[in-house]
Design a binder for these strands. Structure first.
Length: 651
DNA sequence: AGCACGCCGACT
DNA sequence: GTCGGCGTGCTC
């Protein structure tokens, strides 16, 4: 009889020992019986006979060879150490629990499909016509594992990747291309398909289960060479992985919101080091953290930016304090520009970041604001569908005042729908409105995108998804409304994010004329970010790095956010106070707070939080184990404690 | 996480 | 007397 410690995908901080009559390899998937039922598990290591009675392993899922190899187990260990979670939680975060049980054995029929479409040795079937074709190749030759590649032009970036990919395909290696979101995946698939000899498809969460299973199997067997998808593909074990590309490395989609709150860019770095294969972090505008490390020489820095700065006179900041505005939202100056554009048959793009019709709905009878039933958030009113929605938890809210029961409201604050209504009244022309909700429906998405690409509009109005989605919009004028609201968010990265949006704004919109074509309405026209728009990225980074250093933010300190929540607000404030007080014992950290979270109630849970700034790794480790042990002592009822290492969201 | 055990309130 | 509410604790 052999005894094995197995990893169970449950948040249990311990391993369990099971017995089996045959010798099994580490990384083999099995089914075991544990209090609570039958669950899939992964063989972690062979152990000596423990003194106590062990249960038998029920079945072996991987009969031929283990699904996970030793390097993958190393990755799980490493994540467990970096994010202070159990091995089970690390496994769950990397590999979907629902897919863990499936045996990916394929029938004869699917094997035929595979041989037909996914040739075993793909190659680039077209010659690439690129400038500077070897810049990335030469940089990788240096042998650094982590490479930050900054290039403003995404198409050029992809061309350079293809050159490298070709090299690795020739060596029979597998390549993972990780994209920040679904639409970027599709863009990559489109670009790669043009030159690759076999079929490629994107792997993301909304794909069919059968597709996912087939793809996981193909990649694990080593038959699929190029895997393109969102962050979840990082956890798909391969056979002979040779290169990992992670695009849009600065994107916050790489940060996982639920525990253990992984940052997949960092996980990719860990994995590349374990596999000993190069990782390329690609970006038009890297995160301040990555750029700092690259400039410090921790990463290999490849810079290939040929784009000139924005023309001095191209951008006009409209001071909303001293300007007349139609309905308080559209300055007369911008109105004149739009009016002339329409008169001359020219197109305009307007970006504003508020969805819906209005942010606040106020009762006409008692003056109460209409709030979400489950969150301490004002409900957003959607006039087009005549309903109210909470943009934090997604629930719909009845149009009845909770304090007096009346049904009459007036609105405050301007959302996209409201701007759309005003523009329709003013111009009565073809206006397309687009936000993330509109893109959720695939057919609607296709129709709208088609119209936008064909230019069938006079004014294109939408949130920043426009810039995420469309790379070359040819219009006369671009305008941003309500940039000040964005900057008021509690987030130390907000300057970087806003700056990125502003650079995208001037970069993704092509203009015919040479005079002022970009308008930004702001109540703070002296804002330093507008200056950097003219001076360029470099100038911004110098400022931002100084700011982060002065105010002690990453990359100069490590940050941890601790959130204590419960469905009852009894003793919660005292509990977090106690937790924060305990941390005073530890040297080398600074505790900020505790305080009520910016969104005090979310999905019926009351929330308190504090931040830890850590100046040394040892202090961080100590703090987290102290929080965990203290929390276990004071925990009661539905209380939950979330420890977010390197947080990105502060709401 | 999931499930069992256990200790209190409202019913045939 | 007992059915079921969910608070607490354990899982090889």
């Amino acid at each position: 009889m052999y005894f094995y410690d197995v990893i169970i995908p449950r948040p249990v901080d311990r391993l369990f020992t099971y017995q089996f009559e045959n010798l099994l390899e580490c990384g083999t998937r099995v089914l075991v019986d544990i209090k609570g039922g039958v669950t899939p598990a992964v063989i972690y290591k062979l152990v000596d006979d423990p003194q106590y009675e062990c249960k038998n392993i029920i079945t072996i899922i991987d009969l031929e060879k283990p699904f996970f190899n030793s390097k993958y187990l190393q990755l799980i260990e490493n994540i467990s150490n970096s994010y202070y979670c159990s091995l089970g939680e690390a496994l769950e975060a990397l590999f979907n629990k629902k897919l863990l049980m499936s045996n990916f054995s394929k029938g004869r029929k699917s094997k035929e499909i595979i041989n037909k479409f996914y040739s075993k040795n793909p190659y680039l079937s077209k010659t690439l016509e690129i400038n500077n074709d070897k810049i990335l190749f030469r940089a990788l030759k240096k042998g650094d594992l982590v490479n930050l590649y900054e290039n403003n032009n995404i198409d050029e970036r992809i061309e350079h990747y293809l050159y490298i990919i070709n090299h690795y395909l020739f060596e029979g290696k597998q390549i993972k291309i990780i994209c920040s979101d679904q639409s970027l995946c599709e863009y990559f698939v489109h670009k790669v398909s043009e030159v690759l000899s076999c079929r490629v498809e994107a792997f993301y969460s909304s794909r069919k289960l059968s597709f996912k299973k087939m793809y996981i199997n193909l990649y694990n067997e080593g038959e699929l060479k190029v895997l393109i998808g969102t962050r979840s593909i990082l956890g798909i074990p391969g056979r002979s992985e040779g290169l990992i590309i992670l695009e849009n490395e600065e994107d916050e989609f790489y940060k996982q919101e639920e525990s253990p709150c992984l940052q997949f860019r960092n996980v990719a770095i860990i994995y590349a080091k374990i596999l000993n294969v190069p990782l390329i972090l690609g970006s038009s505008m890297p995160s301040t953290e990555s750029l700092y490390l690259a400039k410090e020489g921790v990463y290999n820095y490849i810079y290939c930016d040929k784009h000139p700065k924005v023309k001095e006179n191209a951008i006009k900041v409209i001071d909303m304090k001293s300007s007349d505005a139609i309905s308080n939202i559209l300055s007369t100056e911008l109105y004149d520009v739009l009016y002339n554009n329409i008169k001359n048959n020219c197109k305009s793009v307007i970006i504003s970041n508020k969805k819906g019709f209005s942010k606040h709905l106020v009762c006409l009878h008692c003056g109460e604001k209409l709030m979400c039933d489950r969150c301490y958030i004002q409900a957003t009113y959607y006039k087009s569908k005549n309903y109210c929605k909470c943009n934090y938890c997604g629930s719909t809210i009845d149009l009845i005042c909770k304090s007096c029961g009346e049904k009459d409201f007036f609105d405050l604050g301007f959302g996209l729908e409201h701007i759309e209504e005003i523009l329709n009244k003013l111009f009565n022309k073809k206006i397309i409105k687009i936000d993330s909700d509109d893109l959720r429906d695939d057919t609607k998405d296709f129709e709208m995108s088609d119209k936008i690409i064909k230019g069938e509009y006079d004014i294109l109005l939408g949130t920043f998804v426009i810039l995420r989605r469309f790379k070359n919009l040819l219009v006369s004028t671009g305008a941003i409304l309500g940039i000040d609201d964005l900057l008021s968010l509690p987030d130390f990265r907000i300057y970087e994010k806003t700056m990125k949006l502003l650079f995208k704004f001037v970069g993704h919109i092509d203009s015919f004329s040479s005079a002022e074509n970009f308008y930004i309405q702001s109540y703070d026209n002296e804002l330093i970010l507008f200056k950097f728009l003219k001076e360029g990225k470099e100038s911004f980074y110098n400022y931002e790095i100084k700011r982060r250093k002065a105010y002690r933010y990453p990359p100069f300190v490590r940050l941890v956010r601790v959130i204590l929540s419960s469905n009852k607000n009894i003793g919660l404030s005292e509990s977090i106070q106690y937790l924060a007080e305990e941390l005073k014992k530890i040297e080398g950290i600074e505790v900020i707070g505790p305080s009520a979270a910016p969104v005090f109630v979310l999905r019926n849970y009351f929330r308190y939080n504090f931040l830890i700034k850590s100046f040394e790794e040892k202090a961080l480790k100590e703090s987290i184990s102290l929080i965990k042990s203290t929390y276990l002592k004071i925990k009661k009822g539905n209380m939950k404690c979330k420890i977010d290492i390197d947080p990105y969201f502060f709401i």
